[in-house]
Design a protein around this nucleic acid. Structure first.
Lengths: 156, 156
DNA sequence: TCATATGTATCATTAAGAGTTACGTGATTC
DNA sequence: GAATCACGTAACTCTTAATGATACATATGA
């Protein structure tokens, strides 16, 4: 597919959850981001392992934030969804016996690694709360009457 | 597929071509990078348009460097192979009416755009000649008797 | 005129994310 | 304790983009 959407989608979900009363089911979350409940559980599993969200089974179950958005960085979310490869370009994974190819791969790897480190540092410096505030500004400018646009069915 | 290999492969090819006497056919180049001659022509077309290489048809034809490696930056090569998307992560391409999603996408796009600009600046600052010198160092340390490891059949 | 090599359209293959179905397990409600 | 709800997860299919392969046209040189 085009590219990995998990980080973007999880940020979207986390901010909605922060404004969501009580628990949200996988089905409700799936409707927020226009996808399937199984896809949601797959993504959320990584966040649960890191203590960002909790899940409960059975009646009244679902997902809930386990910490304030101010304590979650974009880096945390990136790692939680499985730290997918950042770049779409780069050398082949396997090693060649050709010294030219080795030199090219090494130089490209080094350049990309440096860029990756810088980008991850940026992610570390941005909290989900900051992004939520971006949304608040947009909302204030829009003049809507609800704190966010709720796509799915009403909360439990 | 895993990721876009064109930039890496083209760098590999350009350095080989710089050490190659006369013209190299698509078939010979394809063997250098273990692929198909048509794939090579597809990649090289972009380089020809930018004046990096020239091509000749018929007997004795093939590809030839049109300028010294010192005049070609990694950025030039990146653009020549069609500037493929740099990142494997990011928001969905289409726009949503959800203000939360808009805020997330905008913040992510901004962060990635900044990272992209920095990486492209890095690419602009590195010439293919520098990478060729990386190879020369590796070669000197390896103690081989030929200036590079030629994978294909002997040159014309 | 024939062999050679590029130019290109068209289709097949491949890899990874995303989507879907099916079924198991635990928790709540009745 | 039976039914229902919701997560947990395995095992598929679908989609997309890069890559690989085939076929054929065109141009060039021997």
């Amino acid at each position: 597919m085009a590219r990995d959407l998990r980080m973007s989608r999880m940020l979207h979900v986390l901010i909605h959850m922060d404004r969501h009363v009580g628990r949200a089911t996988s089905e409700q979350i799936a409707q927020m981001i226009s996808t399937n409940a199984v896809v949601v559980r797959r993504m959320m599993a990584g966040l649960r392992e890191r203590g960002i969200v909790t899940s409960e089974k059975g009646h009244g179950g679902g997902w809930q934030l386990a910490c304030p958005l101010a304590r979650i960085s974009l880096r945390d979310v990136y790692e939680a969804v499985g730290h997918p490869p950042l770049f779409n370009i780069g050398p082949q994974a396997d090693h060649s016996s050709c010294l030219v190819e080795q030199a090219v791969d090494a130089r490209l790897d080094a350049t990309l690694s440096e860029a990756e480190a810088r980008l991850l540092a940026q992610f570390s410096a941005i909290t989900v709360e900051e992004v939520a505030q971006d949304f608040e500004r947009r909302f204030a400018e829009s003049g809507h009457s609800v704190p966010f646009q709720w796509h799915g069915s009403t909360a439990q």
